[in-house]
Amino acid sequence: MPEVFVTTSDQLPEGGRATVRAGKHEIGVIRAKGKLHAFLNLCPHQGGPVCAGLMIHKVEEIIAEDHTYQGMRFNEDVLHIVCPWHGWEFDIETGKCAGDGAVGLRRFTAVERDANVYVIV
């Protein structure tokens, strides 16, 4: 399977992102949680450029043992990327839509070699 050069490793620090065109696809490569994640830059909702969105941790409700609501917090184990068109959120590790697990982003494999980042298409 062909590899497509994306960028050099130093251009992709934690929280950084780059996009690359591979044939008819635009693929976003993101370094987050210490790993590379690559997705088709096309949101399953209405086709927005999802890889250009804000990365933000999952929001959770704090419910006490007595079932009372105690506020909200970020779950720092689960990072989302948010499509900037309407706000659909996706788990950065699985690509699954947070609001509807039946849909998700199309994933690609990104590899790092000799201080360069490639995506396999």
């Binding site: 929280g15 096309l42 990365m55 941790h57 720092e76 900037p84």
Partner: peptide, 20 residues
């Protein structure tokens, strides 16, 4: 949610935002 993921966007262009 944490500064590591704060984002800067410069040079917004409606046409680019809506390229898809």
């Amino acid at each position: 949610s944490t500064p590591a993921y704060d984002m800067n966007i410069e040079g917004f262009h409606t046409g680019e935002h809506l390229a898809n």
